[in-house]
Simulated assay, not measured.
Amino acid sequence: MIDKAKDHCTQLLLNGSCSKLPFHNIEHTKEVVDNARLISNYLGFTDDETEPILIAAWFHDTGLSKTYIGHEEVSKALASGFLKKMHYDPNRLDTVLECIDATKMPQCPKNKYAEVLCDADLFHIGTPNFFFKKLLLRREWAVNGIMNVNEMEWHHVNLKFLHENHFKTRYGKDILEKGKLVNEAKVKYILSFYN
C-alpha cells in the first residue's frame, strides 16, 4: 500500500501546482517520508505501525496541488478518497488522517503516530539544512502572497518559529532539539547585527 500511495502522490505532486513550489514540493515530501521512517525505526515501531505514518507522509502536502491555505483538509480528502478506493482498513485510514491533520500549524498531534509525522515534517529545523530550507520557504511565501518581509523581519519570524515549536518524539527530543537550539542561537547572532 505504501508503494501505491507513493506512486499516486508522486503524480499529484509533480503535475499539480506543487511542482512550482520552492519548498513544499516532491523533494520535501520524499524527505518527510525518509524522516518518518528513520524516527519510526528509532522508536522501535513495527512495520504495521509505521505503514499509516508513511502513507500520511506521502499525502500530507498533496492538497497544495489544489490550494495553498488550508491544504491539509484537501490532503485528507485526497488520502481518504484514494485509500477507500483501495479498501484500506478504516481504523488505519483514521490514523492516516489524524497524522495529516496534526501537521497543521500549530502542530497538535493526538497520538504517537501523529507525533512521528509532525517531527518528520519539521525535521529540518533541527539540522544545519534549516538555513537553506528557510530561504526556499521565504521565496514560496513571497510568491504566494503569504508573507513578504525584509531580512530583519524574516529572521525574527524564524526565531519565533524555532522558539515556539518543540519536537514531540523521543528521537526529536534526543537528537533534533539540540540542532534546533544551535539554529536558534545562530539566528539570534545574525539578529545582533541589526541592532
Rank of each mutant, 00 (worst) to 15 (best):
M1W: 02
I2A: 05
D3L: 10
D3I: 12
K4F: 08
K4E: 02
K6W: 06
H8Q: 06
H8R: 03
C9A: 01
C9I: 07
T10Y: 03
L12N: 04
G16S: 03
C18I: 11
C18H: 03
K20L: 14
P22F: 14
F23P: 08
E27W: 06
E31K: 12
A36K: 14
R37N: 15
L38H: 00
F45E: 10
T46P: 15
D47V: 12
E51S: 08
A57N: 07
W58N: 03
D61E: 05
G63V: 00
G63C: 03
S65W: 00
S65H: 06
K66Y: 01
T67Q: 11
L78R: 02
S80Y: 04
L83W: 00
Y88C: 01
D89C: 04
R92F: 05
L93G: 06
C99W: 05
D101L: 01
T103F: 02
T103E: 01
A114N: 03
E115I: 06
C118A: 12
D121A: 05
I125C: 05
T127C: 09
P128K: 09
K133D: 04
K133E: 05
K134N: 05
L135H: 02
R138G: 12
R139I: 12
I146W: 08
V149G: 12
M152E: 12
H155P: 00
H155S: 09
N158H: 13
K160T: 15
H163Y: 15
N165H: 15
F167D: 09
K168S: 12
T169K: 06
I175A: 05
E177F: 02
G179I: 02
K180E: 11
L181M: 14
L181V: 08
V182S: 04
K186F: 06
K186A: 13
K188R: 15
K188F: 09
I190C: 08
L191T: 11
F193A: 15
N195W: 10
